[in-house]
Design a binder for these strands. Structure first.
Lengths: 140, 140
DNA sequence: TGAAATTACTTTCCAAGTCAAATAAATTGA
DNA sequence: TCAATTTATTTGACTTGGAAAGTAATTTCA
């Protein structure tokens, strides 16, 4: 154990960062054609999946900080992709809703993302893939 | 196949982003005590591992864009952690070198990072861990 | 009830990142 | 040889991100 000199590239955090970087670079390259950022796409998918999400829930699910989300949403509202609505029960909360333009954009982009996901998963056999998902989820 | 409605959280890119986010958040929390950013730490480890790295090689290994690296290095030079040296053979290239202060800081930080890596890897059994590394490296 | 504490979100201010252009050195080939 | 091209890095204009403060609504409990 004391003899084991660990190279920093072997740290899990490095391996993760490297894989994340290549994958998200290639994805954002694809999304660029649609003038869309990965985070904005994730926001839209979250909205499509779960109804009446608050900014807080959204930030968590879309993997962005609340204040970052707030500004991202400002831009998305300007682009007509989403709109804010004060929540019925609790007026502190804001529900974000997809516009029909937003939904349409999302559907088109979803194809692009599915393509990239298939390219990616084709690098692995079904077994590794399942295991990878399992293991990654344990880290969260 | 057509019946399979895939939730976006199942995309590999999402699982990776989520895991990367939690891991790097917890790591940067630890590094904060040392007034250090993950990227700066990676730069120092790269320098320690491979000698006479150029900015280009460094950017690749430390997982940052060249222009981002250039500015990060400006700050690290101000902090006395590294210094630039025009490469001997090719005067366009710049070799970045650790100062002794930089090396000392790196060693102390390395302990912190090793700790976090152990916490992390203890969540997994040895087999999953090996497989995880294998699979992640296939994605790069 | 209502003042104090908590919660949800946004804004502000500053640090850091990105893209494209600029600089400068090396290489190519007419 | 030397003008044109390529390569390595930095710079500059602009955008984005994050921490902490600010705002406003809700909850707590004396």
């Amino acid at each position: 154990m004391s003899a084991q000199q660990k190279h920093f590239e072997q740290h899990l955090s490095y391996a993760l960062a490297a894989a994340h970087r290549t994958v998200s670079n290639s994805l954002s390259e694809r999304l660029k054609k649609h003038g869309m950022k990965i985070e904005a796409w994730r926001v839209m998918e979250c909205l499509d999946a779960g109804d009446r999400l608050t900014m807080g829930q959204l930030a968590e699910q879309a993997l962005v900080n609340p204040s970052t989300l707030s500004k991202l949403v400002d831009r998305m509202v300007l682009d007509g992709l989403v709109h804010r609505k004060v929540a019925e029960g609790d007026h502190r909360q804001v529900n974000l809703l997809l516009t029909s333009l937003g939904r349409a954009r999302m559907i088109r982009i979803r194809q692009e993302v599915d393509e990239q996901d298939q390219t990616l998963t084709s690098l692995l056999d079904a077994d590794s893939l399942r295991q990878l998902r399992d293991v990654l989820s344990k880290l969260c």
